[in-house]
Amino acid sequence: MSTPMDAFDDVRPAVECLDLLPAPVAAALRDRRGNVPVEQVRYVDTDPERADTAVLVEHCGAWLLEQSANCVVVAGGRGGAVTLAACMVLAHTRADVNGVVRRHLGARKASFAPAGTATGESGMEFGGITPIGLPDGWPLLVDAAVAEVPHAVIGSGSRRGKLIVPGALLAGLPGAVVLEGLGV
């Protein structure tokens, strides 16, 4: 089986490409401490027109779908208070926003956050939001299947470029909670 690194011509350590990443992502990588060394995070420069997973998979091959993960921002509300959270699910699944996410956040209602809210609050571009460098205090809900992948292709915070990250690193990010059944 191919690895995500096989799908791209130029794969570099992300810490060598900090100038190509949005400020919150670059800062999070620069300051990264954890069980998985930051040197295992890779950066690949991709055409912004291929930022969407379906387009990237069409270009690189269907096998890449099983090794890609998406980060979506959700808003959970209860009594006028809104909590923003990020969810990481494998690309061939969708986040169970109205079930697992809503219950975990203790929200009465949960939905995908408006694009302007997601980008404005995260400092990242729509279509490239990544769990690396999220604002302090945001819950990061990681599907157990994502935590188990050896390497996942994820957004880089920008529509240009992707990160290839060990699932264990995603599970160990600040605010991360691994949940069974998040991706359905």
Rank of each mutant, 00 (worst) to 15 (best):
A85K: 06
A86R: 04
C87W: 04
C87H: 06
M88D: 01
V89F: 10
L90S: 11
L90R: 12
A91C: 10
A91R: 08
A91Y: 06
A91F: 09
T93R: 07
T93S: 07
A95M: 14
D96C: 11
D96R: 13
G99C: 05
V100W: 13
V100T: 14
R102K: 15
H104V: 11
H104M: 12
L105Q: 09
L105P: 07
G106L: 07
G106Q: 07
G106S: 09
A107E: 09
A107M: 06
A107G: 07
R108A: 04
K109V: 05
K109R: 14
A110M: 05
A110C: 14
A110L: 06
S111W: 13
F112T: 09
F112W: 02
F112R: 07
A113V: 13
A113K: 10
A113L: 10
P114N: 11
A115N: 12
G116I: 11
G116W: 11
T117P: 04
T117Q: 08
T117E: 08
A118Q: 08
T119S: 15
T119W: 14
E121T: 13
S122A: 13
S122M: 10
S122N: 09
G123P: 07
M124P: 03
M124W: 03
M124G: 08
M124N: 05
M124E: 04
E125T: 07
E125A: 14
E125H: 05
F126M: 15
F126L: 15
G127L: 03
G128T: 02
G128M: 03
T130G: 01
T130A: 03
P131E: 04
I132R: 00
I132Q: 00
I132W: 00
G133L: 00
G133E: 00
L134F: 00
P135Q: 06
W138C: 00
W138S: 00
P139G: 05
L140T: 04
L141D: 07
L141C: 08
L141V: 05
V142R: 08
V142T: 04
V142D: 07
A144T: 13
A144F: 14
A145Y: 04
V146G: 12
V146E: 14
V146R: 13
A147W: 13
E148A: 15
V149W: 14
V149M: 15
V149A: 14
P150G: 04
P150R: 12
H151Y: 12
H151P: 01
H151W: 12
H151Q: 11
A152L: 09
A152C: 09
A152W: 05
V153I: 05
V153D: 02
I154W: 02
I154V: 14
I154A: 03
G155Q: 02
G155M: 01
G155L: 00
S156G: 05
S156M: 04
S156W: 06
G157N: 05
G157S: 06
S158D: 15
R159H: 12
R160T: 11
R160Y: 07
G161P: 03
K162I: 03
L163K: 08
L163E: 08
I164L: 15
I164N: 11
V165S: 04
P166H: 01
P166Y: 02
P166C: 01
G167Y: 13
L169P: 13
L169E: 13
A171G: 10
A171F: 09
A171Q: 08
G172S: 15
G172T: 02
G172A: 15
G172I: 01
L173R: 09
L173D: 11
P174Y: 01
P174S: 01
P174I: 02
